[in-house]
């Protein structure tokens, strides 16, 4: 059971890692996969830096959590994903963005998985 949970948590970590690296190597493709155009100038700098760091950071934090069994490393990416889901809802309600239920669902599910993992996989004090 714990082994299965470990695998289930590893998969999004690898996915986030790949997306994060893609922002550094192939930003055009990375932007397209997230349904956004590639920006220009300072906006491009922010787009690549912030989005790339978000995904790369989450991937590395989850992998670190799995290696160290330190529950704090699970909390950080779970918090970031929950915040992303919250901001998607905010963007939809307040700013006229498209409603993205699939993405919100994925973010909530992975955040929940990470919280569960923090309980079951983290080392007991």
């Amino acid at each position: 059971m714990l082994k299965l949970l470990r695998i289930v948590v590893t998969l999004p970590a690898i996915l986030f890692l790949i997306i994060g690296l893609q922002w550094a190597i192939d930003p055009d493709g990375a932007a397209e996969s997230l349904g956004m155009p590639l920006l220009e100038g300072l906006a491009l700098s922010s787009q690549i830096a912030d989005t790339g760091a978000f995904f790369l950071g989450m991937g590395l934090m989850i992998l670190t959590a799995l290696v160290t069994a330190n529950k704090a490393w699970f909390y950080a990416p779970a918090l970031m994903l929950a915040a992303a889901a919250l901001y998607r809802i905010t963007a939809w309600i307040l700013h006229g963005a498209a409603f993205a239920p699939d993405m919100i669902a994925i973010e909530v599910i992975v955040a929940s998985l990470l919280l569960i993992a923090s309980k079951l996989l983290a080392a007991k004090p």
Binding site: I18, L21, I25, D26, G29
Partner: peptide, 9 residues
């Protein structure tokens, strides 16, 4: 580029 990303990951 995909191959490079995959290798680094």
């Amino acid at each position: 580029k995909h191959i490079l990303v995959f290798l680094l990951a």
